[in-house]
């Protein structure tokens, strides 16, 4: 399989990169790990005249905590996320998700920025990041803006990113004690699998250790974009945690799902699975929030 012809640019820093994108116009594409883009190029799904490589942009690296927030540079690889010590506690679900993306070879190249900017409905990292209330940092020729991840996706393959913008990274408010989350993915194989459905759940318990202070449930592959389930959050927040509540919240999440039929599975099955996975994810999130190890998967 051959790649089409293109020019390759390796700008030195972020302003240069944004400038280059502005200059080259819509015919140019950013490339990070290339695990998504190069496949699309080989299949002729897109034919950009130029690729702008991010490998020199130091601004896009790093995994730093500061002022209650965690910054994750857009070039951070899935392998790095999966193994990162910074992603313990309430952030564990992000590492869990990253560890289930593709294969070891793919994880070594795939970046968080690429995973978000491709905006695949079934992508691995959006659900945990949505659950963690992540915000995307977008840099453009005019400077940087911050967008809530929940407002970032516009449709399959579509985001609010402008043609001359580059995602610098994401920031996540660090969950405190009593926070816990889980990520679950359903596919055919146990590796190298695009999700049929994936679900992330996050719970923040109040100091009483029983009342749910904050909750988010995010769903993948059941709508044109990864989504948060407002109904699930509503069902959970302010309630006392427990199996019955989680079952009800999972029902609510299933109602927020808008799956379609395709050759991988029917809409009805997907909706059903949202219910099953959401309940299990909430149970695991709760176990974690209470300081227990998640059991079932």
């Amino acid at each position: 399989m051959l790649l089409p012809k293109f020019d390759y640019h390796q700008p030195r820093d972020l302003p240069a990169a944004c400038g280059l994108l502005a200059e080259l116009g819509p015919e140019a594409r950013v490339i990070a790990g290339g695990t998504d883009l190069l496949v699309n190029l080989k299949h002729g799904r897109i034919r950009p005249k130029a690729l702008v490589g991010l490998e020199r942009l130091e601004e896009l690296t790093g995994l730093d905590s500061g002022r209650g927030r965690l910054f994750i540079g857009a070039r951070t690889s899935a392998a790095h996320l999966a193994a990162s010590r910074s992603l313990g506690g309430g952030l564990r679900l992000l590492a869990q998700a990253a560890g289930q993306l593709g294969s070891p070879q793919v994880r070594n190249r795939a970046t968080i920025g690429g995973n978000l900017c491709t905006a695949r409905p079934a992508a691995e990292l959006p659900p945990p990041l949505l659950c963690l209330d992540a915000r995307a940092l977008l840099a453009g020729p005019q400077g940087q803006r911050e967008v809530a991840l929940s407002a970032f996706f516009k449709g399959p393959g579509l985001t609010v990113l402008g043609p001359d913008e580059i995602m610098r990274g994401v920031v996540i408010p660090r969950p405190g004690l009593g926070g816990g989350g889980a990520y679950l993915k359903l596919g055919l194989r146990r590796a190298m699998e695009i999700s049929l459905v994936n679900v992330a759940a996050f719970l923040q318990l109040a100091p009483d250790g029983r009342t749910i202070a904050q909750a988010r449930v995010a769903l993948g592959a059941v709508a044109p974009t990864p989504i948060l389930s407002p109904r699930a959050a509503q069902a959970l927040i302010g309630q006392r945690a427990g199996d019955k509540l989680f079952a009800a919240a999972a029902e609510a999440a299933a109602r927020d799902a808008r799956p379609i039929d395709d050759h991988r599975g029917s809409a009805a099955y997907r909706r059903d699975m949202v219910r099953v996975l959401a309940r299990r994810a909430l149970e695991q999130a709760w176990d974690q929030a209470r300081g227990r190890r998640g059991g079932k998967s």
């Binding site: 399989m1 390759y8 390796q10 490339i31 290339g34 695990t35 190069l38 496949v39 490589g53 490998e55 392998a79 070891p104 070879q105 793919v106 070594n108 190249r109």
Partner: peptide, 19 residues
């Protein structure tokens, strides 16, 4: 097509030579 790039396995079919 796996090779080790700085010691880590990658699919060399999805890495540009320039990279």
């Amino acid at each position: 097509c796996t090779v080790l790039l700085d010691g880590e396995p990658v699919n060399s079919c999805l890495v540009l030579a320039v990279q």
